[in-house]
Amino acid sequence: MAEKFVSRGFVGKHRQPDAALRERIPPGQYETKDFPVLSAGPTPRTSLERWTFSVYGEISEDLKWTWEEFLKLPSEDLTVDIHCVTKWSKLDTTWRGVAVDTLLEKVNFVAQPDVKHLIAYADGGYTTNLPLTDVLNKKSWIVYEYDGKPLAPEHGGPARLLVPHLYFWKSAKWVRGLKLVRENRPGFWESNGYHLYGDPWREQRYAGDK
């Protein structure tokens, strides 16, 4: 039986003193007040005139919104905690955007019960896969404002997916479309060593984590 390991001389000076806040930080994460930027390549810049948002794949008729049309969709303000797989968590971030439920309300899921996943497509070629049960019922949004201001390009503007209950790589920056699919296929980071699902509370960081 291995004895309990202690890192000699480590005290840990960044403990969250507030127990209520501490409970909101998943295992292995630390709280940051900054908003770090991580992305695999250059920041894409699509003009709002050319920007569209599409829902396609397993759907009887593809849906498409222009930027102007998208802004007219019912939107909501939300305050959520976000958790990046690179270990930082940020509490009480505020966003404005459209619930994915709103975008998918015309999809007849009853008629096609085997369509259980979607792939988010983004400018720059980024993709990420999500189960439908994790985006519907007010669990995910396409957001275009952060902290009361238009979402900055380096943070995914003009619009990004927001799925706060999963690691933040699932919240695809520069998102341009959702493709409804039958098969759960790994997206960009999921094909590069990261977990297929990515629950921060179970610390599903990398492929193979239980």
Partner: peptide, 16 residues
């Protein structure tokens, strides 16, 4: 790599 430090009382911190 990810590293994980553990204090005497079980508190842990991870970084890459």
């Amino acid at each position: 790599i990810d590293v994980r430090l553990t204090a005497e009382d079980g508190y842990q911190a991870q970084r890459s």
